[in-house]
């Protein structure tokens, strides 16, 4: 069980980044369907720089920059030029998928140098796994590579940023009621741009985890739909960075359970395809239950997906 849970954390890591990336977009009131595209841009850019420089920091930086560049196109179109968010997001996914495939053609079959991969071996925190009962539990989360630790760090920082800083409060105001935020003197355009770009950078990191650590080589469509799953999971985890982590962990587990289900000898026969439907069904149920109860907690930001034109109030 412990190795399985450990792998669930690893398989959930790209999702953690992508969910957080989508979450920042949505907190700013933008439903960005370009997550998959930004992940792929980050994945291919990170891989290219890793091959060229063998430097992990530069590789992650490149992934973030290219994810953010994709987000910049999206932000310019939706915020400045006021285009339809869904359509622009879809266009970004088409663009990112195409560009990564084109670029990746030259990277196909290239192997990451040993000096690079060495940086992403699991690092265990020595004393924690020696604790009698809790040790194995800790080891699930704390015998991972540095990239996974980075995801923990970003989850915690995002929580602090959103709930305990003025910027986070302003950001939530922009997403909940853009006109009121604007009237209270918040620079709506700036907030939208900054957080859409942060979101894009995080999606880029999520993609880079796949191409640099999880797979680790280049293949077409390396994200295989994780960007879309992330959009579902933002809702499933109701826009909370902490729940985002657990949602990614759960789905990371579901993602690898298909390979193991035959060997587990479960008392009831569960079909892996039905198992994989569960998160989506759960997401739909969350939306329906939320809509029936008209609850305001666990609900999307009030102005999610609505364009904001100051002149048209």
């Amino acid at each position: 069980m412990i190795p399985f849970l450990k792998n669930a954390v690893i398989s959930g890591t790209p999702l953690t980044f992508a969910i957080l990336g989508a979450m920042y977009n949505e907190k700013a009131g933008n439903l960005n369907l370009g997550i998959e595209g930004m992940m792929l841009l980050g994945a291919v850019a990170g891989f290219q720089v890793a091959i060229l420089t063998e430097n992990p920091i530069l590789a992650l930086l490149a992934a973030m920059i290219f994810g953010a560049l994709g987000a910049l196109i999206y932000a310019f179109l939706t915020v400045t030029l006021r285009t339809n968010q869904s359509v622009t997001g879809l266009a970004l996914t088409i663009f990112g998928t195409g560009l990564s495939r084109f670029w990746g053609k030259r990277l196909m079959g290239t192997v990451l140098p040993e000096s690079f991969s060495r940086n992403f071996r699991p690092v265990s925190l020595p004393f924690l796994s020696k604790i009698p009962v809790l040790g194995p539990v800790f080891s699930v989360f704390l015998e991972q590579d540095l990239f996974v630790y980075l995801s923990y760090l970003i989850v915690i920082l995002s929580g602090i940023y959103l709930y305990y800083t003025r910027f986070g409060l302003n950001l939530r105001a922009v997403g909940e009621n853009t006109a009121a935020a604007d009237a209270s003197g918040i620079n709506v355009t700036l907030y939208k741009y900054v957080h859409i770009l942060i979101g894009g950078a995080l999606c880029g990191l999520g993609g880079a985890y796949l191409s640099l650590v999880y797979v680790p080589s280049w293949q077409d469509n390396i994200t295989s739909g994780r960007g879309w799953i992330a959009i579902a999971l933002v809702i499933f985890t109701s826009w909370s960075p902490y729940r985002a982590f657990w949602g990614a962990f759960l789905f990371g587990g579901l993602d690898i359970v298909g390979f193991r289900i035959q060997t587990l000898n479960l008392p009831i026969s569960l079909n892996q395809h039905f198992l994989r439907m569960l998160p989506y069904i759960a997401t739909i149920l969350v939306i329906i239950v939320g809509a029936i109860r008209k609850s305001t907690s666990h609900m999307p930001p009030g102005n999610l997906g609505n364009p904001y034109f100051r002149e048209e109030r």
Binding site: A91, I94, F95, T97, G98, L99
Partner: peptide, 13 residues
């Protein structure tokens, strides 16, 4: 073929 997707993306933008 991906070149066409890139082109498609540019035209869309």
């Amino acid at each position: 073929q991906a070149a066409a997707d890139v082109l498609q993306g540019m035209i869309l933008f």
